[in-house]
Design a protein around this nucleic acid. Structure first.
Lengths: 108, 108
DNA sequence: CTTCCATTTCAAAAGTGCTTGAATTATGTC
DNA sequence: GACATAATTCAAGCACTTTTGAAATGGAAG
């Protein structure tokens, strides 16, 4: 993961509406949720929800597919794993304090 | 860590200048670096560097202390660990795929 | 006490991102 | 075909963040 990709993911995560959508998608994994359900879950207008969902899809944090007239979004767990790895490994050089904070067993 | 704190940390991390400063501080840990050295390291004017360092300190990602007329900044590894933990545990409910992505040993 | 250096502060300008509501696309139903 | 529903797109306005350069602060040295 490049620095630019990490920055894109981080700024996508750094918004309350999007973070809440993500949490709802975690709970709803792996089936996912429709745009409308997500909008309702975070109390957003359809247009606002669509805006934020586009941003998340663009950053690769979610995927979606269209069935009939509903669009179902699903969380992309690997994308979040990649951000975490970037912070832990590329930024913090696997520092033991950081690993300890998130209950990660020390590696080698 | 509250959602609001997580959002504050994430948006602080989501900026190239700040992320680069953070990386420099990781390498320079635990001694830290002066504001001037950091400014030079990321190719920023003193005023710009100071602006970003304030933001990072405000978010708790770095600490600083003044000695003579130099201000030394140090990385706060625990703060980054807390962000990672928030993403991994509070957001992703410790999902195995996320843990696997960042080489985290599964936790029972 | 004057000067120099490291850093911060400030106000204005520029840039970026978000929200809003209306219009649009596309699908299903009567 | 007319209508309702799910979702997206668009343009305008608003809000927030960043940059810039000048001025201020505070400490050290001649």
């Amino acid at each position: 993961m490049t620095e630019a990709e990490a920055l894109a993911s981080l700024s996508t995560l750094a918004h309350a509406t999007r973070l809440r959508m993500l949490k709802a998608l975690v709970v709803a994994a792996p089936e996912g949720l429709t745009a409308g359900t997500l909008a309702h879950a975070v109390d957003a207008t359809p247009s606002r929800a669509s805006f934020h969902l586009s941003k998340m899809a663009e950053a690769g944090l979610v995927t979606f597919d269209r069935a009939a007239r509903e669009v179902t979004y699903r969380i992309e767990f690997q994308a979040i794993g990649a951000v975490i790895r970037y912070l832990l490994q590329d930024c913090c050089a696997n520092h033991p304090t950081v690993r300890a904070c998130c209950a990660i067993a020390p590696k080698d």
